[in-house]
C-alpha cells in the first residue's frame, strides 16, 4: 500500500524515532511502513492518522 508517511513526517519535522515513540512502536516498524514494505494494522493506521490529524485515506492509498 502506498503512503505519504515520509512527507508528512518531514512536514512536522519528526524523526522516525520521534514518530515511533508517538505511535508506541519501534523505529524499524516506522521505517518498514514508510518504505511500503509493511502495511500497518487498522488500529495502527488510525493512530498514524491521529498523529497527523488526517483521515486514513489522506495518508494511505491502495
Amino acid at each position: 500500500m502506498k503512503n505519504r508517511l515520509k512527507v508528512l513526517r518531514a512536514e512536522l519535522n519528526l524523526s522516525q524515532a520521534d514518530l515511533a515513540q508517538k505511535l508506541d512502536v519501534s523505529r524499524q516498524t516506522v521505517n518498514a511502513i514508510e518504505t511500503e514494505k509493511y502495511d500497518p494494522s487498522l488500529p495502527l493506521a488510525f493512530k498514524i492518522a491521529d498523529v497527523f490529524a488526517l483521515k486514513i485515506e489522506d495518508i494511505f492509498q491502495p
Binding site: 508506541d24 512502536v25 519501534s26 524499524q28 516498524t29 518498514a32 511502513i33 509493511y38 500497518p40 494494522s41 495502527l44
Partner: peptide, 8 residues
C-alpha cells in the same frame, strides 16, 4: 510489549 511488526 512488542509492536505489531515485531510480532508479525
Amino acid at each position: 510489549s512488542v509492536d505489531e511488526a515485531v510480532r508479525h
